Amino acid sequence: MAPPQKSDKEVAAEFTSYYLQRATTEFAEDLDKVRAADDFKNDALQILVSALKQGTALFSPEEQRRIVTAAAPPENTR
């Protein structure tokens, strides 16, 4: 039996989480440099996260669903 299909909202939330994990992994060194800068304030962290999240807009809902589905761990097939 196939699992129920996720709503677009659920897919978008999972994609955003996946995207942010990948982005922070890929850009870890650069993000550390930004956070270590003398002029980086705590309130700038929210701006940085918001800017990273904007990258999700480059992906259509269909692409997001495909990526989330491909990134999901395989179902237990007992």
Results as ranks from 00 to 15, higher is better:
K9A: 15
L20F: 08
E62R: 12
L31D: 10
A70W: 01
E26T: 08
S7M: 08
Q64A: 10
K41H: 08
L52H: 08
N42K: 14
I67T: 00
A13V: 09
A72I: 01
K53R: 15
N76D: 09
L31K: 04
E63V: 03
D38M: 09
Q54K: 14
F15G: 02
T69R: 11
L20W: 05
A12S: 13
D38T: 13
A37Y: 02
A23I: 02
R35V: 00
T77V: 12
T25D: 12
T56I: 09
L45R: 11
S17P: 10
A57S: 15
F40A: 12
R65A: 08
A13L: 08
Q5S: 13
F15H: 05
K53G: 11
A28I: 05
G55C: 01
A72L: 05
P61N: 02
R35W: 00
M1W: 11
Q46Y: 04
N76K: 09
S7W: 09
Q54A: 10
L48C: 10
N76L: 04
E63Q: 15
L20C: 09
A2T: 07
P73C: 00
K53H: 03
Q64T: 06
F27S: 12
T25Y: 13
P4D: 15
D43S: 14
A70Y: 04
P74Q: 08
Y19A: 07
L45P: 10
M1H: 15
S60D: 03
K53F: 06
P3D: 04
E26S: 11
T69V: 04
R65D: 06
P61L: 04
N76F: 05
T56K: 03
L48T: 12
E14M: 09
L48S: 07
A2R: 09
V11G: 11
M1T: 12
D43V: 10
S7K: 10
A70K: 14
R66N: 12
T77L: 13
V49C: 15
D38Y: 11
L45S: 13
V11Q: 12
F59Y: 14
F15A: 02
E10W: 04
R22A: 11
F40N: 10
E75Y: 03
S50I: 06
A71K: 03
A57H: 14
K53T: 06
P73W: 00
V68Q: 03
S60T: 13
L45M: 11
V68M: 05
D38A: 14
E26A: 13
T24K: 08
A44W: 01
A13H: 13
V68D: 02
K41Y: 02
K6M: 07
R22G: 02
Y18H: 15
R66K: 14
S7T: 13
R35I: 01
E26D: 14
D43G: 07
A23F: 06
K9S: 15
I47S: 15
D38I: 06
E26P: 06
A28Q: 13
L58M: 05
P3M: 01
A2Y: 04
A57L: 10
T24D: 03
K6Y: 04
D39M: 04
I47W: 14
S50A: 07
T56G: 03
A51N: 10
A2H: 10
P4T: 13
E62V: 11
D32F: 06
